[in-house]
């Protein structure tokens, strides 16, 4: 009952899109934080890991169902994000960007290995919260989780886009991103805005973490490293700081990976993804959706 070539191609596209929507979800938070304070928050992937554990705790120990558990994890990580920002990043706001980056690496290590002390390095398994329903469409199989994943990331992206573009808070965020000092002079509480940005970014990471835990079934304290890096690549691919760019970048990355694997070169897929990234950057140095800012003399 071997499947036809078209079936295979469509199956790989489904595979790629569901993987890509995880990347997109993480990349959204990444790009948002970057957009406002120009900080590459390398700890973002690890906040995702904390979110995955928070969700796991809510489901297995507190016996919550999926949505309350998701909310629990998002709130917990939003708080964590704000605390991290206040303690580690705020004092460095006027220091060099590289100092802030090193601090972010420090926070990332702290979350990874602090987490390991707390919950041990052992892999935990997520209880099944989604029904194990499979849908088969002309031989192309996708599961309930694939749909939830794609829907969640699309909805969150749209919500985020609306928040940033059409609400007062969003206007303030864009003002801070454009010129922090001028925004302060205009009566915007920049500290609160930046904290708010971190809260949203971390909540998004938590959502991604819970979904990833549910989807791949296993979580461990180092699970955030690779997806974090991939999401960063996705954000840059789309043009870092641009919300729809992160979404498109994430989906593209997922598709590239699954197509390369589908062609039988699974161990090369990350190399191909990076190569495409470098080529895109050489042709369009600020990403697919980025605007090229001309340097003023």
């Amino acid at each position: 009952m071997g499947s036809s070539i078209t079936q295979q191609i469509f199956q790989q596209i489904v595979n790629g899109l569901s993987l890509g929507s995880i990347y997109a979800l993480i990349a959204l938070g990444y790009t948002m934080v970057y957009g406002i304070i120009k900080l590459i928050n390398f700890a973002h992937g690890d906040i995702m890991m904390v979110g995955a554990y928070a969700g796991w705790y809510a489901i297995t120990v507190l016996h919550l169902s999926f949505l309350p558990a998701l909310l629990f994890a998002m709130v917990a990580c939003a708080l964590l994000g704000v605390v991290i920002e206040r303690i580690a990043y705020k004092p460095l706001r006027n220091a060099s960007r590289i100092a802030a980056l090193i601090t972010a690496i420090g926070v990332s290590l702290f979350l990874e290995y602090g987490g390991m002390l707390l919950v041990t390095a052992q892999v935990r398994t997520y209880p099944p919260v989604f029904p194990e329903t499979m849908y088969s469409f002309h031989g192309v199989i996708f599961k309930y989780g694939d749909i939830v994943m794609l829907l969640t990331s699309t909805i969150l992206m749209v919500l985020l886009h609306i928040t940033v573009q059409y609400t007062k808070m969003g206007k303030a965020m864009r003002a801070v991103s454009f010129d922090k000092d001028a925004a302060l002079l205009m009566g915007i509480n920049t500290n609160n805005i930046i904290s708010f940005t971190f809260a949203i970014g971390s909540a998004l990471a938590a959502a991604a973490g819970v979904l990833m835990g549910v989807y791949f079934n296993t979580i461990d304290p180092l699970m955030g490293i690779i997806p974090g890096l991939k999401a960063f690549v996705a954000a840059v691919l789309g043009g870092i700081g641009i919300i729809p760019g992160a979404m498109v970048g994430g989906l593209m990355l997922g598709l590239i990976e699954s197509i390369v694997s589908g062609l039988g070169a699974s161990t090369w897929r990350d190399a191909v993804a990076f190569l495409i990234l470098i080529l895109v950057l050489i042709v369009k140095p600020s990403g697919l959706f980025g605007k090229n800012v001309r340097e003023k003399v």
Binding site: A88, L92, A95, T103, V107, S108, L109, F110, E112, Y113
Partner: peptide, 20 residues
């Protein structure tokens, strides 16, 4: 088990108090 946690804390503290 504490090695990287301590390293991380030192790193953050160092950057906070002497970012250069």
């Amino acid at each position: 088990e504490w090695r990287l946690v301590i390293t991380a804390v030192l790193l953050i503290a160092m950057m906070l108090f002497r970012p250069t």
